[in-house]
Structure formats: structure tokens, C-alpha cells
Write a protein that binds this DNA or RNA. Structure first.
Length: 423
RNA sequence: GCGUCGGUACUCAAGUGGUCAACGAGGGCAGACUGUAAAUCUGCUGACUUCGGUCUUCGGAAGUUCGAAUCUUCCCCGGCGCA
């Protein structure tokens, strides 16, 4: 068994739960936020700083590392964790998101989460003319034009799994197609069928490689289905029930052993969401997915969304938001986000977030960070990133603690009330 | 003193008769960012505005012209050269 998931306590009257996820590189206490280190680096931080900010697990990206430095380099370095000197658990995304971000979303003003009130939401995805996308989908796989040097690469589910095995994270994802919520029903169905076919091929190839190299790697299948309840539930069901022949026993048996059927070790919930229906989509899916396996809501990480996910049975979240907005000057506080580049912080000698015990808050003032951002000093990104991931890690850890002591809903109400009050 | 080059918005800096409230860069003021093409991107940056425009600007003053940041004259300021 490559991972072991144990539920410690469930939420009354909701799908949420607190648990532990054991990997060969340590235990993840869930629910947990997964810090993104796309290119085998959490931007602006050393692994020690990532750890000190309360991080349990880091996620890197297949597509980026395949292009640079190449997955074989990382395999030869001893795997992702050894290469980047992160001793804790690791995950890799499959490249499925790049099918979206470099494909349908390329050169357009749409992102992972859009509001249905956004004018862009009304533009039919495939009919709007934009730049020539870097990712083009075929039924067998996706052709990518490298954003680094323009070279062409063809990624199939097998290729993604092979790269991910070379990267050697504890948890990897099936190759999927992340669709935009604007896609019409016909396209959603077509894409979903493709994602399921790719999931099957990912699982088959994963089992084959696992049998060959004996690595302790867990594979998560990814649920898609856009905004449709029917498709979301169908996707969760199909992936839940999907199995392939298990690893071949090392010693040749006497032929009477029943063949082991294995499925996914956990599940990702994917897709670009309409803000307004993200919670219903998560609920639909988690009502169908098996309770005893971990669920990862891909790419979501705003405080409000984390509460929603945890309440509805999500165990893992990853998101570039906290690290990205930090580098751009926006910091989380208990009273909402603040942009340190705003004039009001130039002479604000209070700490970033009162009461926060992160390295940045203990040692520095808003005025100092404001200066660093204005002066374009690199340390600005470092101190801001430390604070933001500490803030999110702490928030999710507090949610976990509140599930364990039965105060989740009170905690949620109190936090969101304060968080939504403008500074 | 003579000659010469220059003086443009917060700064630097284009423009050398109408398409100029004036290119561009920086700075400033905001906004965005959700499985990272992102230490990135977008908007605004003379005043007023019922968003149609209106008014005041390119060292100062006076001219030429239908029209001047742009041409002329004088003045002020700065650089350089010669006395």
C-alpha cells in the first residue's frame, strides 16, 4: 500500500472529516493545504522556510519539470523530494491543467474560477478567436508547443504517468482534461469521455510501472463534468468503480491466486469553476466518491473556498493563489486581504496580521514590507510568501482542530465574519 | 560681452505650424491574480464635467497666422566655446 488514509472524526450533518494520510515521506494531517512548487521550488522560499511556515506537503508539475530540467534528471537525482531537498510528502500534477491553461484558456481573460456575472463567462469558449493555443487536444493525447522554446511535445496519459513515476512523488494524478465551465453540454460530454478513457489508461500504466519499479506511488483519478450535476456524479461514479489488474505478484504463484483488481488511491476534483456553483459541484461529487479515500480539490485556496471544501468532505487543497498574490503584494489578514503597495501602508508600523506568529509578522512591519515591495527587493516576495502560506496552513489546521473538537461551524462563522469586514 | 546649444507634465524624454492635453519610459494612484507562460498583468495619472465636451498648459512677454509646444522679436535661466 503506497498511502494509508484514516478518518479520525467526521463533521455532524455534513460531509467533512479530519484524518491522516500516511505516505512514505511522512504523515499529512487532513484537511491540509498543499503548497505549490511547480518547478520543484516554492517560489521565493527555501524548503526550510516552507516547512517553518507549517507546510506538510508540496506539489510540483509534470509538464514544467518534463520540459525543464527533464524528468530523467530528477529521477537520477533520487526523485523530486531529494532533488529539491524537501523531505516531506510530495505530489505532482499530471499536466492536465496545462491542457486548459495553454489550450482553451490561452491568451484569454479566463481563469480557474470565474463568476457567471463576468462578461467573459458568456463568450463561447471554442468560437472566440484568440491567439493560437499552445496545447491542442486529440483523442490519444495532447500536443504541446513548449512555452520555453517552441518545441513540440506530445503528452499521452501513459507519457504523463511515466514522467510522474520518474519524478517520483508520493501522490500523482491521472492525466485529464480540465474544461472551462463555458463549454456547451455536447463538448463537456465529449471531454468527460476522454478524461475517463485517459483515467483508465493512466491507471493501467501506473500499475504496470508500479509492478516494474516497485515504487510507493499513489495515483489519484480526477473527476470532471463541468457544471452539470449529471456529469459530475457520473464522473465520480465511473472513477470510483474503475479498476485494473493489480500488480503482478513477484513470485510466480501457482495460478490459483485471484487476480487483484485495484482502483485509484484517491480522487482529485478538477475543472475550471463558476464561482457560484463550486460548492454544489463539490457536494455532488463527494456524495458519490468512496468515503474511505482521500479527496483533493484541485487548484482551490481562497479562505472562503477552503471552508466550503472542508465542510463538504475535501481533504486536500492546492493553490497557487497564496504564493502568487504574495509576490504581487497582497497578503492575507484575519480582516481580509490587504495590498501592501497601497499608500496607506507606507508608514504603517504594525505587523502584517495582528496576532500572527509567522516569521514575517514576528519580525517586520507593514511599512518595511511596503518599502521592500516599492523598492522591488526580492526579500519582499520571500517575507510575503512566508506569511501567506503560514496563514493558509494555519487556517486549515485550525479547521481540522475545530472538526476534532466539534466547533467547526462556530469557527467558520466567526472567521468569515471577521474576514469579510473591510480593514 | 559675442557665439552656440538648450529650457515640454512629478522625473527623464519625444514632438519642431493643424491629426497635441501633448509619444515613450520611470515614478505615483488603484485594480486583478484560485491544479503558476505570473517577483506578473490591466487601468488611471493638467483641471472641471450632466461623459457630449469645456477650460488652463510646453521658461516669460509680445507678435506673425484662420490656427503656435512648434515661426519671429525681446527678456529670464542653464550648458558649452571664444574673448
Amino acid at each position: 500500500m503506497s498511502i494509508r488514509f484514516t478518518i479520525e472524526k467526521k463533521l455532524d450533518g455534513a460531509l467533512g472529516r479530519a484524518g491522516t494520510l500516511e505516505t512514505s515521506h511522512g504523515v499529512i494531517h487532513t484537511p491540509s493545504f498543499v503548497v505549490v512548487g511547480t518547478k520543484a521550488s516554492v517560489k521565493a522560499l527555501t524548503p526550510e522556510q516552507v516547512r517553518e511556515a507549517g507546510t506538510q506537503v508540496v506539489l510540483a508539475n509534470t509538464y514544467h519539470l518534463y520540459l525543464q530540467p527533464g524528468d530523467e534528471i530528477i529521477r537520477d537525482a533520487g526523485g523530486l523530494g531529494d532533488f529539491m531537498k524537501w523531505s516531506g510528502p510530495t505530489m505532482t500534477d499530471s499536466g492536465g491543467f496545462q491542457v486548459f491553461s495553454l489550450g482553451a484558456a490561452y491568451g484569454k481573460d479566463i481563469s480557474k474560477v470565474v463568476s457567471i456575472t463576468d462578461p467573459n463567462f458568456l463568450i463561447p469558449e471554442r468560437s472566440s478567436s484568440g491567439e493560437d493555443p499552445l496545447a491542442k487536444i486529440g483523442n490519444d493525447g495532447v500536443s504541446f508547443k513548449s512555452h520555453l522554446d517552441g518545441s513540440l511535445h506530445y503528452i499521452t496519459p501513459e507519457k504523463s504517468i511515466e514522467i510522474q513515476h520518474n519524478l517520483g512523488a508520493d501522490i500523482i494524478f491521472a492525466f485529464d482534461e480540465c474544461t472551462s465551465p463555458q463549454e456547451d453540454d455536447r463538448y463537456q460530454r465529449e471531454a468527460l469521455d476522454r478524461t475517463h478513457a485517459w483515467a483508465k489508461r493512466s491507471l493501467e500504466h501506473h500499475q504496470k510501472l508500479k509492478a516494474d519499479n516497485q515504487k510507493q506511488i499513489a495515483l489519484f483519478g480526477i473527476v470532471q463534468g463541468g457544471r452539470s450535476e449529471e456529469l459530475r456524479k457520473k464522473s465520480a461514479q465511473i472513477l470510483r468503480d474503475m479498476t485494473v489488474d493489480g500488480p503482478v505478484p513477484l513470485e510466480a504463484g501457482n495460478g490459483t491466486l485471484p487476480s487483484l483488481r485495484t482502483g485509484f488511491d484517491g480522487f482529485g476534483i478538477g475543472g475550471s469553476f463558476a464561482k457560484e456553483d463550486m460548492s454544489t459541484a463539490v457536494k455532488w461529487v463527494n456524495e458519490v466518491l468512496p468515503e474511505d479515500k482521500p479527496r483533493h480539490l484541485l487548484g482551490i485556496g481562497e479562505p472562503e473556498d477552503l471552508f466550503m471544501g472542508v465542510e463538504n468532505g475535501v481533504d486536500l487543497f492546492d493553490c497557487v493563489g497564496p504564493t502568487r498574490i504574495a509576490r504581487n503584494g497582497t497578503l492575507f489578514t484575519k480582516k481580509g486581504k490587504i495590498n501592501l503597495l497601497n499608500a496607506q501602508f507606507v508608514n504603517d508600523f504594525t505587523s502584517i496580521d495582528e496576532g500572527c506568529e509567522c516569521y514575517s509578522c514576528i519580525n517586520y512591519t507593514r511599512a518595511y514590507l511596503s518599502h521592500l515591495f516599492r523598492a522591488k527587493e526580492m526579500e519582499a516576495g520571500t517575507l510575503a510568501t512566508i506569511h501567506n502560506i503560514y496563514f493558509i496552513n494555519k487556517l486549515v489546521a485550525d479547521m481540522r482542530a475545530s472538526i476534532l473538537d466539534g466547533t467547526f461551524f462556530e469557527f467558520k462563522e466567526k472567521f468569515l465574519k471577521e474576514y469579510n469586514v473591510k480593514n
